[in-house]
Design a protein around this nucleic acid. Sequence first.
DNA 1: TTCATATATTAGTCTTGAATAATAAATTTA
DNA 2: TAAATTTATTATTCAAGACTAATATATGAA
Lengths: 164, 164
Amino acid sequence: MSKNDRFYTVRGYQLLNQEDKSLTSGMEDYLEMIYRNMEKEGYIRINTLSRLLNVKPSSATKMVQKLAALGLVDYQKYGIIFLTEDGKKYGKFLLDRHNVIEKFLQNIGITENLLLETELIEHSISKNTMKNIDLLNGFFETHPGVLEEFKKFKEIAGHGIGKT
Amino acid sequence: MSKNDRFYTVRGYQLLNQEDKSLTSGMEDYLEMIYRNMEKEGYIRINTLSRLLNVKPSSATKMVQKLAALGLVDYQKYGIIFLTEDGKKYGKFLLDRHNVIEKFLQNIGITENLLLETELIEHSISKNTMKNIDLLNGFFETHPGVLEEFKKFKEIAGHGIGKT
DNA sequence: TTCATATATTAGTCTTGAATAATAAATTTA
DNA sequence: TAAATTTATTATTCAAGACTAATATATGAA
């Protein structure tokens, strides 16, 4: 059994992850949202953040403090939240990733719960996979005939098979 | 802001999820692995399971007890683990889903850490997305020229852009 | 400028899924 | 069959990320 043939549970991967310096998916959710708002207004506040993420302010405070400790956000008690340079870089990456996944899902025909599906998937995508999905999106864009054909294919294949 | 335009954190989605009867991703990992082994040997034991999942036996015991409580596995203390009919159905679904994701990743050119990537992604895929990705796999299979073209496209586009 | 309201923080609790250590049952072997 | 070994369970602990309740700070109005 080679090194990469081993199975791990999801929790196991999380534990592995914390050894390098990457963020937990919770932190990513927050950072991505802070980044979105930075682009619009240049800053964000705890209340806005918690409302946007559907979370209580107390949870947001806690997480923002963690992000601050990691040097990704710039903030002090009762204050306004900004991103540091590092935070902006990471945030941009997160938003790009989000958009890549969303575009891909649209391409293959997901219309319902598009945001929800994107949010769920994005955290589990590696940079390599993201890059390849991005390329696939680019391929579809430059080859519109292919997507057309896929749609036709779906209409035929999608009927009556009911493979779940 | 429509119902589906709301953002949630990953944990938030988990909490929403636990209201319906679906399994946590942890449970899914276990059930899928049990199913794999059922196909090979007809049963599994705690030790094997924990070894395959890279987890301690105590963790496996705990999870198997939960799955038993949900009526998905058939087992009693110190005994051998089988799947119930429900467990088999769910397990088959999980394995199918795994294979769909893995095939997709292969199609777009993921070769490194294929298993790891699959494991991470599979839990966050809805049935609808799975169905559509499956159709995309089918499309690629019946239109080998398209994948060929994609490969060429990647060779050109993949150079020098370095979008991350 | 003081009081009321809005906003943010802290402390403590819950759940999930890991881990360890101690214990118990089952199995092998002498 | 008794002892040694393997296998499984229980009890307890830990971290993340949610929550609530209580408290603290800031801000706007009288």
